[in-house]
Design a protein around this nucleic acid. Sequence first.
DNA 1: GGAGGTGAGGCAAGCGCTTTCCTGGCAGCG
DNA 2: CGCTGCCAGGAAAGCGCTTGCCTCACCTCC
Lengths: 345, 345
Amino acid sequence: MATLSDVARRAGVSPATASRVINGSSKPVTEELRERVLQAVAELQYVPNAHAQLLARSHRTAVGVIVHDVSDPYFAEITRGLQRVAADQGRLLMICNSYRDPDRELEYVELLRGQQVAAIILAGSGYHDATFTRLLNEKLAAYEATGGRVAVIGRHEHSGDAVMPDNRTGGRLIGAELYELGHREIGVVAGPAVLTTTTDRLTGLREALAAHGLSLPEHRVRHAAFDRDGGVTATAALLDAEPELTAIVALNDSMAIGALTLLRSRSVAVPAQVSVVGFDDMPIARDVTPALTTVRLPLVEMGARAMSLALDPGAAAPRVEVLPAEMVRRDSTGPAPEVTPVRSR
Amino acid sequence: MATLSDVARRAGVSPATASRVINGSSKPVTEELRERVLQAVAELQYVPNAHAQLLARSHRTAVGVIVHDVSDPYFAEITRGLQRVAADQGRLLMICNSYRDPDRELEYVELLRGQQVAAIILAGSGYHDATFTRLLNEKLAAYEATGGRVAVIGRHEHSGDAVMPDNRTGGRLIGAELYELGHREIGVVAGPAVLTTTTDRLTGLREALAAHGLSLPEHRVRHAAFDRDGGVTATAALLDAEPELTAIVALNDSMAIGALTLLRSRSVAVPAQVSVVGFDDMPIARDVTPALTTVRLPLVEMGARAMSLALDPGAAAPRVEVLPAEMVRRDSTGPAPEVTPVRSR
DNA sequence: GGAGGTGAGGCAAGCGCTTTCCTGGCAGCG
DNA sequence: CGCTGCCAGGAAAGCGCTTGCCTCACCTCC
């Protein structure tokens, strides 16, 4: 691998001069030497060693991002927003998938710290887990103490800059909508109970129902993985146990798609017999049949805001931006059927 | 930020000893000193500077991956395979999205070279573009000349280790299947013509049709972006120009989903009036309505193989692994209707 | 008791680059 | 003609870490 001094030698200059030419330093270099250096660079196919550069300048420029899984459309959208702002500022992004494993999340904070990133962005739900929260906060505090910036998306436990989707209002919106449509027997297909996203959305839903004197008993909430397959199994269990339901609320769109698939496989008409509501408004939501009624979160915007917060030197006080949720009515919801729907099995 | 010498000073040892304790070197260190060092590490929340480490050891361990877009399910699946093998070998992955921009792809090769990655994996279709191909090959050759390993997925232009999905056979499978079902008027919703993936799949399809004396005229092939929206617009154009079609082949599942959505919006029954076939078998394919008939590619496997090739020191001769395509019959295809279907508009 | 052996720990030389400070040459000026 | 000032280019000191080699103390054995 060619090094700077190889280039310098070939160009007949000192490494210092070569470095200045290559990095476009403000220090002037005669046209002739500049030429020679560039020529040598081309001939040797020289590429600077990024690690040596990072070590030599004290500058830190990359930004680390920890998400549950980039291939999950929810995070893919957020990441798009993060990328956009990062690219605008010429910054490299290091993306790490925690796959919803708190330990891995902790490890990645260390790793990013070791990579000397300028900021760490934690996207994705927090956990209801005191020990983990303490550990995470310790690590983040240590990082911040050395000048690192931290921004979180949708997490409560870290007292710093944050952007928060309004999950609770989103839940309320769903509750109000379904009540409006005449639904009284409502079931929930929920994500893992340890995720704050799950509990926040559930809380909002409960609040809206309570406002109309309705309650949502525990046995009508089924927890499963926050993905399509989780949606399938939770919906199956829910339907078997509570055949009188007229509406199913899935706490994210992936689960909603699983619910839709299961209902179709059981020949339950949506929305004629059972209405289905999702959450997030992932791109695919409008392409399933029936098109999914859901709550839209401005995911790209959330990512962009978080990155802006992280890159902005930051006010003394922690800044929290709450982004609104919005009801998107499509074809998977309708008026509650008059009588308890007939099930095919 | 605490450094190794801070740790050493606090523990009252030399940096050398501290380093040895921290990295579990084979050189023995007395229990007492070890204790003191670990204590200091904990107290200072010390994390080694990854760049300094990389510079000091000549070891290169990270692997770079260039894909079109991780959030595209096609690449998400491939990436999953890459990750699995990389994780097994304790290697860090750097993932770069080229967003199908050849220039960006070139830049990323440089960047990864600068990051001293042990290998670069190029996933995603090649381009029919001689200049670009030459440039890319030059850069890759320069990288390989310095001991870097390269593996490509689904590209022809690089003469090295490669894993290739059998796109052509996949195309043939579709042609045979549709012919079998009685379709004679077939249109294609294709990705960009510059992508080898597009042309390979198209070639296979044409071959299968030609085997039965059918031809696929250019005007029945519509090129658009390889995503859902591209599928919508291309299908709309195709339908307007060629109302007698009884089958639409989308050259990937995203486009197929767009096609399905457009057909639904025009109240064209699938598969009663028009059959639709996709390609790739992304996870969502089974969840749309009607469930998508498509060609399955072993995406995760492709990723895993590519990573194995890249990490394996490598034989003298370039290794090429072709992974088979397989027809997956679902609900979006059926027998060709007897008469030209009636369109709602 | 001295030679030789052993093993823990430290010294210092890098890894490849940036950047401060210095040098030496030249023009301009009194 | 000698001095000052300026400027392009180079020497060298790190950045934070690893690691080969050396030292030194302590044993062991003849």
